[in-house]
Computed example of a mutant assay.
Amino acid sequence: MDYSVEYRKNKMPMELFRQRYQDKEKFMAYCRECPRYDTVWSCPPLDIDAEAYLSRFEWINVVGAKINLERHVTEEADTADKIKDLGWKIVSEVKLCMEEKLRKLERELPGSISLSSGGCNLCRKCSRKAGQPCRLPDKMRYSLDAFGFDLSAITQDMLGIEIQWCRDRLPDYFTLVHGIMTVNEVPEKIWLSIKADIK
């Protein structure tokens, strides 16, 4: 095994969450600099009314994954290509698994919808570039950062994780931040019953 995953969760009323962590102007500027901007349906500019989309929910449940890399992995990734390829492979595996589990949780929590981490990568090439509708609208989920949320502050404050960035070497760990927005507060017993599923 090249990595292990530690899952953490926390929740907050949506109104308070937006007051603390949403800064659309600041983070949309970062999105516009990203090569995926306007090329992936999960990323800005969004094809929905973001205000109306978020205002339906009273609670947000943040689910984070701290992906701890084995030492041999960071040592073996000794070129830029290896760092990029191996990092993408590991993060994608965990991300797709988390998305699947959260879509399952949506079915147990009527009126809920999940949010992913980063741009959607369900398709090899997004249909948005060709001006066509999303191929998997029932599975595609928008990312937290697509709404202008501060992921670094969220992970530090709510999950106790400081994000490490991948630069000239693989970091000691990667961090993914997903969420599920709900109309009502999720009882702890439901979280306990699906804890094994999220892992």
Rank of each mutant, 00 (worst) to 15 (best):
Y7W: 11
R8P: 02
M12V: 03
L16T: 13
F17S: 02
R20V: 03
Y21R: 09
K24P: 01
A29G: 03
R32V: 07
E33N: 02
C34Y: 02
P35A: 11
W41V: 07
W41H: 15
P44Y: 05
P45N: 09
D47L: 08
I48C: 08
R56E: 15
R56C: 13
R56W: 07
F57V: 08
F57A: 05
F57R: 03
E58Q: 13
N61P: 02
N61R: 09
V62G: 00
V63T: 12
I67Q: 01
E75D: 10
D78S: 14
G87D: 09
S92C: 05
E93T: 12
V94N: 11
C97G: 04
E99H: 09
L102P: 02
K104W: 05
L105T: 12
E106G: 07
L109H: 03
L109I: 14
G111Q: 04
S114W: 06
L115R: 12
G118D: 15
C120Q: 01
C123E: 15
K125V: 08
K125D: 12
K125P: 01
R128N: 07
Q132E: 11
K139N: 00
Y142S: 12
S143C: 06
A146K: 03
T155N: 09
Q156A: 11
Q156N: 10
Q156W: 00
D157Q: 09
D157F: 00
G160V: 06
I161C: 07
C166Y: 00
C166T: 14
R169H: 15
T175D: 11
H178K: 10
G179Y: 00
M181W: 04
T182W: 08
P187Y: 14
I190D: 05
W191G: 08
K195W: 13
D197V: 14
K199Y: 08
